[in-house]
Simulated assay, not measured.
Amino acid sequence: MQIEGDTVGDVVRRLRRAEGQIRGVIAMLEDGRDCADVVTQLAAVSRALDRAGFKIVASGLQQCMSGKNDGSDQAADIAQMEKLFMSLA
């Protein structure tokens, strides 16, 4: 199963945003910022990464449900998607 181009672009944007947030967290730590501010930013990074992962999983589920898979066993695809989804939970 391949990730569609639109989804790839969206996920890459989300990951680049998270990358910038991580750089910001590192700078905050180096500058001695308040731990509550650092934790707030870390939570934002975590949500951004979760959203990127969920977007990929949702895309795969959509492909499976619409029958766009490559002809492989649908039960195996569903099991694989369930495993991926649970790895993000």
Rank of each mutant, 00 (worst) to 15 (best):
27 A>Q: 15
28 M>G: 12
28 M>K: 13
29 L>P: 09
29 L>R: 15
29 L>I: 07
29 L>F: 14
30 E>F: 15
30 E>V: 09
30 E>D: 14
30 E>A: 14
31 D>E: 15
31 D>V: 08
31 D>W: 09
31 D>I: 00
31 D>A: 15
32 G>H: 01
32 G>L: 09
32 G>V: 02
32 G>R: 07
32 G>T: 00
33 R>A: 13
33 R>Q: 06
33 R>E: 15
34 D>Y: 15
34 D>H: 11
34 D>L: 05
34 D>N: 05
35 C>L: 14
35 C>K: 13
35 C>N: 11
36 A>T: 00
36 A>D: 08
36 A>G: 05
36 A>F: 07
36 A>H: 13
36 A>P: 05
37 D>Y: 01
37 D>A: 04
37 D>L: 06
37 D>K: 01
38 V>A: 10
38 V>H: 01
38 V>S: 05
38 V>G: 07
39 V>C: 15
39 V>F: 12
40 T>K: 06
41 Q>F: 08
41 Q>L: 08
42 L>V: 10
42 L>S: 09
42 L>D: 01
42 L>G: 05
42 L>F: 10
43 A>M: 15
43 A>L: 07
44 A>L: 07
45 V>M: 04
45 V>Q: 06
46 S>N: 14
46 S>D: 07
46 S>Q: 12
47 R>L: 06
47 R>P: 00
47 R>I: 00
48 A>S: 01
48 A>T: 01
48 A>E: 02
48 A>H: 01
49 L>M: 03
49 L>T: 03
50 D>L: 12
50 D>H: 13
51 R>Y: 10
51 R>P: 03
52 A>P: 01
52 A>W: 07
54 F>V: 04
54 F>P: 02
54 F>T: 02
54 F>M: 12
54 F>C: 08
55 K>L: 09
55 K>E: 09
55 K>Y: 11
56 I>C: 08
56 I>K: 07
56 I>G: 04
57 V>T: 03
57 V>P: 04
